[in-house]
Design a protein around this nucleic acid. Structure first.
Lengths: 166, 166
DNA sequence: CCTCGTGCTTGCATATTGCAAGTGAAAAAT
DNA sequence: ATTTTTCACTTGCAATATGCAAGCACGAGG
């Protein structure tokens, strides 16, 4: 009954969808970096994702119902990717991943500022952020608070402290 | 400064450690199934992990500081694996993964009972469970509540409902 | 000694990843 | 209108990871 995979355990099913080195990176960049096109995702990738892997993941994530793709009216060949509700509900997961990585691995100072804010804000902040993502990606009404700007501002402030690159 | 990997982003670092199809499955089995030896992990694997992959993951997770291995005093060649504090702190992450998979994928009823309990119990339950894991794996004092038994009992009750295998 | 259980390795076929270069269509420039 | 550039995505191929089956070493028991 649990379709095709290895087992019907929810953790295993999540791992079968997202348990690779790139899927969540792509979602993270769309979500926190607001990268909405193939070119943005490729060029501004902090980790340097390869073009074929990016194309593959965009296809898989779209097929899995985590992203949608609609053509850009101004540039016909361009596609604009949006998060679905299912992907937006990964916010708590990504927040926890950031918090765990921040505590147990050795993150760079600038890049962990957002994770720190998300951890300190907790579920209320996550919910506000999810509402904002529903506005940005699903056309829901604009919420009063822009967590996105807060995260971005904190990141840029941290960047300014260390003007010379990583 | 962010050591060897692709970037110092905490989410990326977590993905570099745990972003594959098996690492978290092994941790899950040690954590929720209390499988402590190679043989138990291999034989009772719901997903049928291959022996070489299991050996590799046990090595990597130990090297990464998520597991420790001590020899079994009764059977010298046997190793007993324990979770470290860092691995125990993955409880919230695994709980979220279970919750997300339960909501968005098609889990089997029996195997999602534990995820459901963990989701409903929230952070207080996670903390109680983490305390119990510290007792089972790190020698901390036994906490008053055994979340492990509660999860196990709920799972077995669900199993009893469907006596014929999956 | 032999044998069996057990933790882990090895060989090898197949799948996934990563890099570099290429393709084809639409926009922009001339 | 024709050339050039941009852009989304492919393709070829080497390197790595996975999966399966069999094998090996070592200790305990007889």
């Amino acid at each position: 009954m649990p379709q095709t995979g290895r087992s019907g355990c929810p953790i295993n099913l999540t791992l079968e969808q997202l348990g690779d080195r790139w899927s969540l990176i792509v979602i993270r960049d769309v979500m926190f970096g607001n990268r909405r096109t193939y070119g943005e995702l490729l060029a501004q990738s902090e980790e340097g994702i390869a073009s074929n892997i990016l194309a593959d993941r965009l296809k898989r994530l779209t097929a899995a119902g985590l992203l949608t793709r609609r053509p850009d009216p101004r540039h016909r060949q361009k596609g604009i990717y949006s998060l679905t509700e299912a992907a937006i509900e990964l916010v708590p997961l990504l927040a926890h991943m950031g918090a765990w990585g921040r505590r147990h691995l050795r993150p760079s100072r600038e890049l962990s500022v957002r994770a720190e804010l998300l951890e300190k804000g907790g579920p209320p902040l996550w919910n506000a952020f999810m509402d904002e993502l529903r506005h940005l990606h699903l056309g829901a009404p604009r919420p009063p608070r822009s967590v996105f700007s807060e995260l971005q501002a904190a990141y840029e402030k941290a960047l300014a402290r260390r003007p010379a690159g990583s």
